Amino acid sequence: MESTLIALAGTTVAVAGTLLAPVLSQRLLSRAQSDQFERQERAADAQWARERRVAELDKRRACYVAANSDYRRYRVELMNHLWRVHKGEVTPEARAALEDARHSMHASFAEAQMASSDTVLAELDSMAQTLAHAYDRVMRLHEGVPRADGTFEEIRVMLLRANDQWMGMRTAMRADLGVDPGPAGP
Rank of each mutant, 00 (worst) to 15 (best):
G178H: 04
R174Q: 14
R102G: 11
Y71M: 15
A148N: 10
S117L: 04
E154A: 08
H133L: 15
H142M: 09
V138Y: 02
M158E: 13
M158Q: 13
D118R: 09
D176A: 10
E99L: 05
V179G: 02
A96Y: 00
H142V: 07
E77M: 08
T119H: 05
G168A: 10
K87E: 15
R60C: 04
S126L: 13
R156Q: 15
R61L: 12
D100Y: 00
M158L: 10
A94L: 07
S104D: 15
R61K: 06
M167A: 09
P181V: 05
V54R: 14
H86C: 12
A112M: 13
Q113S: 15
S108K: 03
K87N: 14
P181K: 09
T130N: 09
M167G: 03
H142N: 14
G144W: 04
V138C: 07
R53W: 05
R147H: 12
S117C: 06
V157A: 11
R170Y: 01
A67P: 07
M173K: 05
P146S: 07
R72T: 08
F152V: 10
A55S: 12
S104W: 00
K87T: 12
N68S: 15
L78V: 05
L124E: 12
M79E: 12
F109I: 09
L124K: 04
H133I: 10
H133W: 06
H106G: 10
N163H: 01
A67W: 07
A162E: 12
A128Q: 11
S116V: 05
H103Y: 07
R174I: 01
V179H: 08
A66T: 11
M158N: 07
R95D: 12
A172G: 03
L160T: 05
R156C: 05
W83S: 15
A112H: 01
E56R: 09
M158R: 06
A172L: 02
R140D: 15
A172Y: 01
A55V: 02
R174G: 09
M79T: 09
E123S: 11
K59L: 09
T119E: 15
D70A: 14
R61W: 01
V54P: 03
D176Q: 03
L121V: 04
K59P: 00
L177P: 06
A96W: 00
V54F: 02
A162P: 01
L177V: 07
E89F: 00
V65K: 05
V145A: 12
V157E: 13
A134V: 08
E51I: 01
V76L: 13
E154F: 00
Q165C: 02
M114E: 15
K59W: 00
L78G: 05
D125Q: 15
V90E: 06
S104T: 00
A94N: 01
R147P: 07
R53I: 04
A128S: 14
H106T: 11
F152L: 07
D164K: 00
S126E: 14
V120T: 08
R137H: 09
A49N: 13
A128P: 01
A67S: 14
S108R: 02
P92W: 00
